[in-house]
Design a protein around this nucleic acid. Structure first.
Lengths: 229, 229
DNA sequence: CGGCAAATTGACTCATGTCAAGCTATGTGG
DNA sequence: CCACATAGCTTGACATGAGTCAATTTGCCG
């Protein structure tokens, strides 16, 4: 791996406080690879042989049961995914596929566990990451169990607006079918949910979303930091 | 706190590898308290001042949004709860209430964080715990998003059967209304879900459940280690 | 420009929630 | 020890949320 790439990786929270020798040891056997869009990187159930890091592009984490599939998260650069499986030595509980052409770094899980054993600072970073993930997952569960699909969409739009510096107009980061799956509904239902939010000032044109009546949308969505962060 | 009690606490995974001085420091300011049934120990949104451990009784973890409430988990002795909030210094994302008369130990969060900073072995235990919780949460999300309520119930029954040493008859560990909330449905819907599983050999009488036709139930429930552990 | 996948729309079914009534079990106080 | 009160559970009737299937329409990419 090139020095630039290493520096890029080192910038993420997970490696912020890792010692230089630990980082060197950890990345020594790592390799970066380019993948075309829509390639399945891992499949749920497989042993967790690698920890993954997205350098560019994006990765969709999803799971199947019978004929159903659901999107659990989308990972954007620069971040790791599948950390808990690596730590736990358990099988992957999610599958992963590239959303677009992506550059991915793979760290052998055994090395991650070694480094975690030997470098207390790295262990602490892992703790922070896992606690963060756990809480994000908890919020997600509350969102699913306490809200209807329309309410989830409304809150998703408000959150996305915030990420876009409170712009009243922004682009959806991914396809509507993925968004639907992430929000726990069908694409058809998402279309109708968007239509039903029209009276609250939500206009959609392709990937472009405009929020014309923020107070009304907030009034309906009732966002809370205990779910929406 | 009495020596017995300390020994009991020390037995849980979280404290398995903690050093003696760390454990002493951690428990020095801890105190145990008896609570009557149905007492709210913590409320979501509050700062996470304590890490809790259930010594006897049980604790229900739940959350509210508007008029809706949902049960997220039930904690049985001897285990901790609210660990991620403690580590993260974030507000609690769940409320907790005793299900019955319960003995609860409270450890000041600041002490937990201190010990976590100073004792690498404790930090490693925390990592394991958090990874385990995270994965349990993930399984739960998959369960919710990929299955109908009947399927969730069927799989819950199979899991409970396994926990009861594969006995074909066992008692539900908690009230049906709590079970319904945990499984993400209304009590009415749970009643009907039970009724609809009757042809698959599921008989219910109060808290007593009998599974007469295991193959049929399994065939319907399609359990998988990637969701059901 | 053509072709394909995504998105939308309509009509319908099915799953789940809501409201109300009645039933059951359980524990308490007389 | 019984009777009542209370909360939980069940059942029915209905409303609403959400999924399914099919037919277009739209938009994008080669």
């Amino acid at each position: 791996m090139t020095p630039d790439r290493l520096k890029e990786i080192r910038g993420i929270d997970l490696f912020k406080n890792i010692s230089d020798p630990s980082f060197a040891a950890l990345t020594q056997a790592a390799y970066a690879q380019n993948f075309p869009p829509n390639v399945e990187l891992i499949t749920e159930g497989e042993p967790s042989d690698f920890l993954y890091i997205v350098i560019s592009g994006s990765v969709e984490l999803f799971a199947n049961w019978g004929n159903n599939e659901t999107t659990l998260a989308t990972v954007w650069p620069v971040s790791s995914f599948i950390l808990a499986a690596t730590i736990n030595k358990g099988p992957y509980l999610m599958s992963a596929r590239t959303g677009e052409k992506s550059l991915i770094v793979m760290l052998p899980s055994e090395d991650v566990r070694q480094t975690f054993e030997n470098d207390p600072e790295f262990a602490k970073s892992i703790v922070s990451e896992l606690a963060k993930y756990y809480r994000a997952g908890l919020r997600n569960t509350k969102n699913l169990k306490l809200r209807t699909s329309k309410e989830r969409l409304a809150n998703y739009l408000l959150k996305t607006r915030k990420k876009n510096n409170d712009a009243s107009q922004f682009l959806l980061k991914y396809e509507k079918r993925r968004l639907a799956s992430y929000l726990g509904m069908t694409p058809e239902n998402l279309s109708r949910a968007f239509a039903s939010l029209k009276p609250l000032g939500v206009r959609v044109d392709g990937q472009k979303v405009t929020l014309d009546n923020l107070p009304a949308l907030i009034e309906f969505a009732k966002p809370t930091r205990l779910i929406d962060g």
